[in-house]
């Protein structure tokens, strides 16, 4: 996916929103900036399908060498799919963070949270300042 067409959370998750059957669905992943900062990833715990999440709630965890980090849900809604191939193939996250490295799909329950997300240019500016 082209990052210019994605939205970004300040906590380094990306979001692609599509409409399917009248519902807005968000595909969520970690940005390349975040994956590089985390260095070598060794474990991931994916959220359970059916889980209701709030925006900015930790819904997934990753371990890189010895540091455990949260991945935050950028939108509120229900987790309807997770990328089952990730736990055994974590290199996908660094190889294709905006494509095959997606983490979960969330059926958006409250679209208001989308207003808190940034476009690519604003996100890049945030990264440059860190």
């Amino acid at each position: 996916m082209n990052p210019d067409k994605l939205l970004f959370a300040k906590t380094h998750e990306w979001v692609a929103v599509v409409s399917e059957g009248g519902q807005k669905i968000a595909t969520v992943g970690l940005t390349s900036f975040a994956v590089e900062a985390l260095t070598d990833l060794v474990f991931i715990e994916l959220p359970k399908i059916g889980r209701q999440v709030s925006a900015e709630e930790s819904f997934c965890e990753v371990e890189s060498v010895k540091a455990v980090s949260d991945v935050y849900a950028p939108v509120a809604g229900e987790v309807i799919a997770v990328n089952e191939s990730l736990p055994d193939n974590l290199e996908i996250l660094s190889r294709d963070p905006y494509g095959d490295g997606w983490i979960a799909r969330i059926k958006i329950g409250d679209e208001a949270g989308l207003k808190n997300l940034m476009d690519h240019a604003a996100y890049q500016k945030q990264c440059e300042e860190q």
């Binding site: 906590t11 010895k66 540091a67 455990v68 980090s69 949260d70």
Partner: peptide, 8 residues
């Protein structure tokens, strides 16, 4: 040896 946890 040490280990880390990030939170917000």
């Amino acid at each position: 040896g040490s280990a880390q946890r990030r939170h917000q």
